[in-house]
Nucleic acid binder design. Structure first.
Lengths: 334, 334
DNA sequence: ATGAAAGCGCTAACAA
DNA sequence: TTGTTAGCGCTTTCAT
């Protein structure tokens, strides 16, 4: 159990004061003799000295860590988002403290609090959507909070998300052009900002492009039976029209594809299908799924960039909504 | 910019000393009057006081954080692994500092070092496989290091991974029983512990079960053309025998499936295919892929459990290799 | 160009 | 049952 090497030993061995070592560590070479610099470098090397970041952060109030809270770390969306976040943080020399709420609002609150206890310099949240009041509260503090993908009502936080409106219009135009006359939208319960905005976009597209009544199918229950029933409902409700399903996210897409396979329904002849999220398997099933590719990686990257701007340039910038372009990838299912 | 509330203010307001507050925070109620306890609780509530974890960790040398280093945070394997790790850490009241190396050995070293600087209490690594010497070095320190999925040669670290040998035997028996007489194994370059052990298992299965020569196809290059060429090679090399491909991991599976689709090869008639990793799409393609389900979530969970054991019960326990059972899921492709 | 000294917010040995 | 006190390892002001 050998004692840890601290700045004190380094100072002694190098024959200078703690202060000088600290200056060295922080790259403040302006007024330092070449001699000291070299000596310190050598001693640090010899001793294998490494600074204690807890102590540094405690004193300097800069932890160089940002906290990230995702709603489902196991999903491809989150994992690509995290990749964007962690790649970008690395470039800025920041570490990433990650937690996973499983869409549990209580956990979200607890984690935010405990990240603040850790003195993270900023928090990126993919919020459950059930904590608006709490988030507002946190927003009053002085640790920047940025929302990824899921917005909240008020324009209080920087929010980075996909530009759902234009892509939904595009999807509608594509479906129309392919001869689909009825489009049902399948979604999980409308309890977070992403779903709500996507819903608005769908309704708008129905009105402006398709000139039909919106048909929203909410997947309360993701059991095989329930999903099949919902699909069947949509089919039954639209007689002999050419029908297409548009999904709200990758999870829904997956459930729908499974249901269609079990039901023996083929795309695009029996039914059109436009999914959301260009996950790697979408090109493999049924000759390839038409999907909207969401810029998950970019969302992560831009969230970090914005965070760095806020931390280093302007703590009080007006909140911004940054919407990133999606891409429509037309394949076989429409 | 209002000053942060510290233990000192709480102490003053509650009319007790810092020590008593500290005792309260750490749940040391044994010798504390009911009166103090209640007063403190009230004051903390009123002030909205939250302890500074940096200070706590600095003093107590217990950060309650463990570091996790994955080789590709964007892959389903990592993301499920992380889910297992973070769910389990939560139960123990630990936070998770995550970094992603993109299989870059230099980054792996840097991250390990900077996690030590953060005074994480333990590190879980899904190592690139290119840092054995460095890892040995770190192993001599007093922060436990645990390997997830990818082992290193020496038995120096706790290692949690899938039990590749028995499942590979089972796969071989299954393929044999289905009438396949030649089995090629497709893998990325053999540069990490997981691949090497899986390779051994495959060679053993060829000898003990299939009684054939092993045929290892290394995917140096994952371009469409290169993969197709490799597949074609395997086919050409085995004339009219009944041939099956066995893949080493999910990424390889994906590339093979794509190649087969492009080449118009159908499973199981033209070629058998047994994949690795039961990712959610494997049941969707070509009537369902036969796969080995790897216990990614459990690997994460067990790694954390072992870490907690090491941290709290026995810092010097002998390194253990924990192999978790895989499951063969037979579907349509074999 | 360098150093002395005063903390950052907390914990824990020791004393009472 | 509670408080006093000396740090944890570093940064930073101020002085030289």
């Amino acid at each position: 159990m050998k004692k840890n090497i601290t700045i004190v030993e380094v100072a002694e061995k190098a024959g200078v004061s703690k202060t000088t070592i600290s200056r060295y560590l922080n790259g403040k070479f302006e007024f330092m003799s070449q001699d000291s610099k070299e000596k310190i470098a050598r001693v640090i090397e010899e001793l294998g000295y490494r600074p204690n970041n807890l102590a540094r952060s405690l004193k300097s109030k800069r932890s160089r860590i940002i906290g990230v809270i995702v709603s489902d770390i196991g999903s491809p969306f989150s994992s690509i988002l995290l990749k964007g976040i962690s790649d970008c943080c690395e470039r800025y020399g920041y570490g990433v403290l990650i937690t996973n709420t499983n869409d549990n609002p209580k956990k979200e609150r607890d984690y935010i609090l405990s990240m603040l206890d850790q003195r993270v310099e900023g928090i990126i949240v993919n919020t459950t959507g059930q904590n608006d009041d709490f988030l507002r509260q946190i927003g009053k503090g002085n640790v920047p909070l940025i929302l990824a993908d899921r917005a909240i009502e008020e324009k209080m936080f920087d929010t980075i998300r996909s530009a759902d409106y234009p892509i939904t219009i595009k999807v509608a135009e594509h479906l129309k052009q392919r001869g689909f006359t009825r489009v049902g939208w399948f979604v999980e319960p409308l309890n977070n900002g992403a779903r709500i905005l996507r819903h608005k976009a769908y309704v708008a597209a129905c009105k402006e492009v398709l000139h039909i009544e919106p048909q929203v199918y909410i997947m309360e229950d993701k059991s095989s039976l329930a999903v099949e029933k919902l699909v069947q409902q949509f089919i039954d409700a639209n007689g002999s029209e050419r029908k297409a399903i548009y999904t709200a996210n990758g999870v829904v897409t997956l459930h729908i594809v499974k249901a269609l396979q079990r039901m023996g329904i083929h795309c695009p002849d029996d039914l059109g299908l436009c999914g959301f999220n260009n996950w790697n398997w979408t090109e493999l099933v049924g000759g390839g799924l038409t999907v909207v590719a969401q810029p998950s990686y970019k969302i992560g990257r831009e969230a970090v960039k914005r965070m760095m701007f806020r931390i280093h340039r302007n703590h009080n910038a007006a909140p911004r909504l940054i919407e990133l372009e999606c891409e429509l990838i037309v394949r076989h299912s429409t």
